[in-house]
């Protein structure tokens, strides 16, 4: 897959969750241009076109990042901070994936500039519905700004 035309970057360490999310997105036909990375460091490499992804053009920003907070190496919160702290990437919509509505993270995420969040419900039906709708929303409504 051409890494320069990626529309969705899924940052998710848990394979099952990643698979289910991709399944849900696929059902909506949104998984064609999706890249999944397994940890925060890889996510940053991808976004900032560095390391493994250094041949990628940084200007080809994903249209939405689905970001799990609990990640190995670099935490989701740090990834979010880096994305929103850099003028080149701060406009990328970030949808945070959380396991629970409780916990202090949610508020911090909004403060850091997260655009939305998805609480990952246990019921797969609900998850499919929410992920699909949100993915669509950000891909279709929030077209990448010109330039």
């Amino acid at each position: 897959m051409d890494e320069n035309v990626v529309e969705i970057l899924l940052v998710e360490d848990t394979d099952a969750d990643a698979e289910l999310a991709i399944h849900a997105l696929r059902k909506r036909g949104l998984a064609n241009r999706l890249v999944r990375v397994k940890d925060g460091a890889e996510a940053l490499d991808f976004i900032f076109a560095q390391g493994e992804y250094s041949n990628r053009d940084i200007c080809n920003r994903p249209k939405v990042v689905l970001l799990d907070l609990r990640l190995p190496k670099v935490s989701g919160m740090d990834v979010l901070r880096r994305i929103k702290g850099d003028v080149r990437t701060q406009k990328i919509p970030v949808v945070v994936l959380t396991s629970s509505k409780e916990g202090p993270d949610l508020e911090d995420c909004y403060k850091l500039g997260a655009n939305s969040y998805i609480s990952k419900p246990v019921e797969f039906d609900d998850f499919t519905k929410v992920v699909g709708e949100l993915g669509l929303y950000w891909l279709l409504v929030n077209q990448a700004p010109p330039g």
Binding site: A16, L20, S99, S100, P121, V122, F124
Partner: peptide, 21 residues
Amino acid sequence: SYSMSHDLRTPLRAIDGYSTI
């Protein structure tokens, strides 16, 4: 508790998701 909410739920989600699929 945070881990529990995350880590215990993840397999449950997987059970539910895979069963549903």
